[in-house]
Amino acid sequence: MKYPLFKITIECMTFNQSQYIGKTLDGFCIQQTEFPFVCCIIDDASTDGEQIVINTYLETHFDFSESSVSYTKETDYAKIIYAQHKVNKQCFFMVLFLKENHYSQKKSKTEYLKKFNEGIPYEAICEGDDYWIDPEKLSKQVSFLETHKEYGFTYARAYTCNEKDEISNKYIFGSNAETFNDIIARNTIPTLTTVYRKALYSNYLKEIKRSDQWGMGDYPMWLYFILHSKVHFMNDIVGVYRVLPESASHSRSLKKKIKFVIGEYRVRLDMLKYANRKDLVFLAQKELIKGLVISIAYKIAILCRLK
């Protein structure tokens, strides 16, 4: 199979997000670009009917005619579907319906895309409960990186919404961070708004050993990227970040909140060690204490409301 010369890959990891995934897919398909792009959607063996939702979306919006470039194949690990959008001819989907849940087995989900992704210079990330609203997001960010070789990645801002799709105008996620010190102090980079060079990401994978204690994959990446390249902040609102009651970064459970705060602290310490920046350890400790205090105060406030 000969694929187009894709300029960018969109990586979408999803599991049991059937009620949200439709908007995520819409956000991909509205992108207006002068280059072909491919959305790699990996469903981690969902049990809530999400695979049916994605499959129905494909059948409705993508070209599976005899003259199309589409194909479907079965492997020992997944059912794979590749197709081109009926209307947006620059938009292609590569969907992997995994047969076993890889997260619970601590198995990599991205290894299946390595060969397919070879030669594609840029990558974006959007998980299955977030979504894009700016049809020029990819075009603007790729254009910037194409003309500013010293920059390794670019990001923007995002609205926040809850599980009921209620968008908050009071809290907009994302603000300018130009230095390593800025991001060590506070992660202000919404993952769904980023685009980065794959070469930089490849170097990150070679040099940084991921720790199970981190509990997050994006924050150490941004810290590494800003150590090895310039970062560009685009002051546009390009998407919507969904804040759920229970997720990797948010929880009503004090135990889970504390675990997340400690994981964030571990990231800071490990990346400070990598950067040989002992001068910022006190800052990391201060952020740890602040995070623990906020988590405990939040739990106390909930208990008081229940009374």
Rank of each mutant, 00 (worst) to 15 (best):
K115P: 00
F282N: 14
Y241A: 09
D270T: 08
A275F: 03
A78K: 02
I41C: 03
L58F: 06
S202M: 09
K198L: 09
T188Q: 12
H148D: 07
A284D: 00
M1Q: 11
E50C: 06
R305H: 09
S46C: 04
C161I: 00
Q105I: 00
E74I: 15
H85P: 09
V53M: 08
M94E: 11
L25W: 05
G22Q: 07
T72C: 13
Y103R: 10
F64C: 09
D130C: 08
L292H: 00
E11Q: 09
S251R: 06
K73Q: 12
T60W: 01
V243T: 10
L280W: 09
E178R: 14
Y196F: 15
S139W: 01
K170W: 01
T56I: 04
K164N: 13
T24D: 02
K99I: 03
F173E: 11
I133D: 03
K255T: 11
S67Q: 15
Q32N: 14
C40V: 13
E163G: 05
H85K: 06
Y20C: 04
D270H: 01
L303T: 08
T110E: 08
K114W: 08
Y171C: 06
I294Q: 12
V281N: 06
Q31H: 10
S168K: 01
L269C: 11
V293T: 14
M216E: 10
F173I: 01
A199G: 15
V231A: 15
D182G: 09
D134F: 04
E66P: 01
T193W: 00
M1H: 14
I125T: 07
Q285F: 00
Y171D: 13
K198M: 10
R277E: 13
I30N: 02
F153A: 12
S175V: 03
I237W: 02
H232D: 02
K286V: 07
Q51L: 00
S175L: 10
D134H: 07
F260H: 13
Y219R: 02
K79A: 01
H85S: 11
L272A: 11
